[in-house]
Design a protein around this nucleic acid. Structure first.
Length: 683
DNA sequence: TTAGGGTTAG
């Protein structure tokens, strides 16, 4: 009775008393073991089971084994589990379907699927639980194809699935990001007459979230209100789980507003750490990184304190990485160090590497990397990506070699990063070598993303003809990213012919991308083909496509300041413009000539020069100079690619100011120092 | 006495 009520101490007292008086029997041993398992204290459950087997004079029966096996499973204690299995075989208890199922499940949970499958095949009598344990076992170790084929076999053998089977299959699809398939299974489940429950809905919502299927997510929401939520015998924790899954679904499907409304409807004392995390993560992934950081601060400062877990911290760092919010990111790093996050540290540390490198301080990312106790493939590739973004190609390739020495096998993503690093550092020959080697030496077949990297690599280096030849040689259809790489390279090298070709291909495939139109009109402007510029602009106008406004932000003393082109809204605008005018006068004396083609207007050169001088990145720089301590770097982030004229101006300005200018644009980092830029023209 | 569930990184 005490055991069933969760009163572990009381149950133990009664058990010890019975033992002392010598009147304990197998049932009392079984009950106490079960009580420990239920309380989550599997270690003590195992200890008691051992005492029962060796010291008590009683012989474990089928119930004892069924009690102790889940404890082995949840500890991953496969050696003890195997001993229990051997005991069952010796005692002839393995015929019992309960015992068989528990053994099978123990092997599955310890990741020993081949052992589990052997047990499954040898079972003379299988029930639905046996099949379900096998299906979920395969699914959870990532052998989802085998899980599915078992699921299909169940149909063939006319074994009727129950809610557990259906939910497990839905969850399997959802975990792999195959939301549409999850939805299909859900429909089949409803047709089969099986009634979805909370677990089904939570799994399904996770699938909708990963598929971005808002409509089906809403349908699931209706179903939840009608049939599942707020039922009298529901555990309130289960209801919250569904609500959390709904918030996550709405946020990931682009309805952060709806998600926020649901979040606000839950009173703070009812929210748990996942409620906060899904909302923060939703903002961070939907490009509302400012909202994410605001909520993160609110979470750690609220009266009803809930400690952020590794997931929350990762989401916060992701938001910092997007915004290049170095100061906030550093504060989160300090928070981690103060608050002991021992478990699942790898994930958080990987986020730290990413945050530091995307915020302009790749050396700090390297320090995090060097201090890691355990590293996985993502740790190595994150560091490599960082070096690549900063144009430090040699160091990126060094990381690649060290990674191989550490025994890690490069995969498709690794090679994207390697090629990206070569491209951004102008290491053309090495890039070609790696591209040739990836299939030959590593067995990684180049995908469309690797071809895109190669087009980028050759294109940046001005080898446009070779890039075009490579596209023609591709064994698959080029995706927009391939043509976009060719188009960017054509813009960089002022090649109208290739630019037009790539732009036409791109507009055939996806006509909504403002970036393609802007690049093409830049190419025409550079060639002074104003009629073509006007034509592109009129197409944009008639199709309603608008160029995204350029926007830059800089971390000043009083927080982050944001600027748009020609922006006069900042309270210090007057001063900012004075600084800028003065700087431009001074660099003109050093040889700077405004590159008017970037102004995109068919007006006379003097006026174009004026428009250029108000580009957002220049305004951000002037503000940075006003608010940054002498000698400290100025960190600017831009949402689009830096304009060529601004790039040239910043190179000159870095000769006359006592700051390094660290600029992150949508493509990479530029470090301007003493008259040169780290990108060496490769942007 | 056995089976299923939500949030994170390249």
């Amino acid at each position: 009775m005490y055991g069933r009520c969760g009163a572990l101490d009381d149950a133990r007292k009664v058990f010890d008393e019975l033992s002392e008086r010598g009147i304990g029997d197998v049932v009392s041993w079984n009950s106490i073991v079960a009580t420990y398992v239920q309380a989550g204290d599997c270690r003590n459950a195992l200890r008691l089971f051992d005492r029962m087997t060796w010291d008590s004079g009683h012989v474990p029966d089928a119930v004892s084994l069924v009690n102790v096996l889940p404890a082995c499973a949840s500890l991953g204690a496969s050696i003890q589990g195997k001993q229990v299995h051997a005991f069952a075989l010796r005692r002839g208890l393995s015929e019992d379907v309960y015992v068989g199922n528990a053994v099978l499940d123990m092997y599955a949970k310890c990741g020993m699927l081949d052992e589990a499958s052997k047990v499954f095949k040898q079972m003379e009598f299988k029930d639905l639980v046996s099949w379900n344990a096998m299906v979920t076992g395969y699914s959870q170790v990532g052998r989802f194809d085998e899980a599915l084929s078992l699921f299909e076999k169940m149909e063939v053998e006319k074994i009727e699935s129950n809610v557990v089977t259906w939910s497990a299959v839905i969850a399997g699809y959802a975990q792999r990001g195959h939301g549409h398939e999850a939805l299909d299974v859900f429909r089949r489940m409803c047709l089969s007459g099986s009634e979805p429950n909370i677990v089904t809905l939570v799994s399904l919502l996770s699938g909708c979230a990963s598929a971005g299927a808002l409509h089906q997510g809403k349908e699931t929401h209706c179903y939840a209100i009608k049939c599942v939520l707020n039922k009298l015998d529901n555990d309130p924790g289960d209801d919250l789980m569904v609500i959390n899954a709904l918030i996550d679904m709405y946020a990931k499907c682009g309805s952060a507003g709806v998600a926020r409304t649901m979040f606000d409807l839950i009173t703070p004392e009812h929210r748990n750490v996942v409620t906060w995390t899904v909302m923060i993560g939703g903002y961070a992934q939907q490009g509302e990184a400012n909202g994410a950081l605001k909520l993160f601060s609110e979470m750690v400062n609220q009266a009803n304190f809930i400690k952020p877990n590794a997931f929350t911290i990762s989401c916060g760092l992701m938001a910092c990485a997007r915004l290049a919010a170095l100061r906030f990111g550093t504060q989160i790093h300090a928070y981690i160090l103060r608050n002991q996050y021992d478990s699942v540290m790898v994930h958080v540390e990987n986020c730290l590497i990413d945050m530091y490198s995307k915020s302009g301080d790749i050396d700090a990312g390297r320090v995090v990397f060097d201090h890691m106790q355990h590293r996985n493939t993502i740790s190595w590739t994150s560091l490599m990506t960082g070096y690549g973004m900063h144009g430090r190609g040699d160091e990126a390739l060094w990381v690649f070699n060290e990674m191989r020495k550490a025994g890690l096998v490069p995969d498709g993503v690794t090679f994207v990063v390697v090629l990206y690093a070569c491209s951004h550092a102008g290491l053309v020959d090495q890039g070609i070598e790696y591209f040739d080697a990836m299939d030959r030496d590593y067995g990684v077949v180049p995908g469309v993303e690797h071809y895109a990297c190669m087009v980028d690599l050759l294109g940046r280096a001005g080898r446009l003809g070779e890039a075009m030849k490579l596209i023609k040689r591709m064994p698959m259809q080029p995706t927009p990213i391939v043509w976009f790489s060719l188009l960017s390279a054509s813009r960089l090298h002022g090649n109208v012919e290739f630019g037009e070709y790539a732009a036409n291909k791109l507009l055939d495939i996806e006509s909504e991308n403002d970036g393609s139109y802007t690049l093409l009109s830049n190419i025409y402007a550079n060639a002074r083909r104003w009629k073509d510029v006007a034509r592109v602009r009129s197409v944009m106008k008639s199709t309603g496509i608008r160029k995204r406004p350029g926007c830059s932000w800089v971390q000043g003393m009083k927080g982050t300041a944001t600027f748009y082109v020609g922006d006069w809204t900042h309270p210090q605008s007057q001063q900012i413009h004075e600084v800028l005018t003065d700087l431009i006068l001074r660099i003109k004396a050093l040889g700077y000539v405004p590159q008017t083609s970037f102004a995109l207007h068919d007006v006379d050169d003097e006026e174009k020069g004026d428009l250029l001088s108000e580009h957002s990145e220049k305004l951000a720089l002037a503000y940075g100079i006003l608010t940054t301590a002498p000698g400290a770097p100025i960190r600017i982030t831009k949402n689009l690619r830096v304009c060529g004229d601004c790039h040239s101006a910043m190179t000159y300005i870095s000769m006359i100011i006592n700051h390094e200018i660290i600029l992150r644009d949508s493509s990479r980092f530029h470090h301007f120092k003493k008259g040169s830029c780290s990108c060496k023209g490769y942007w």
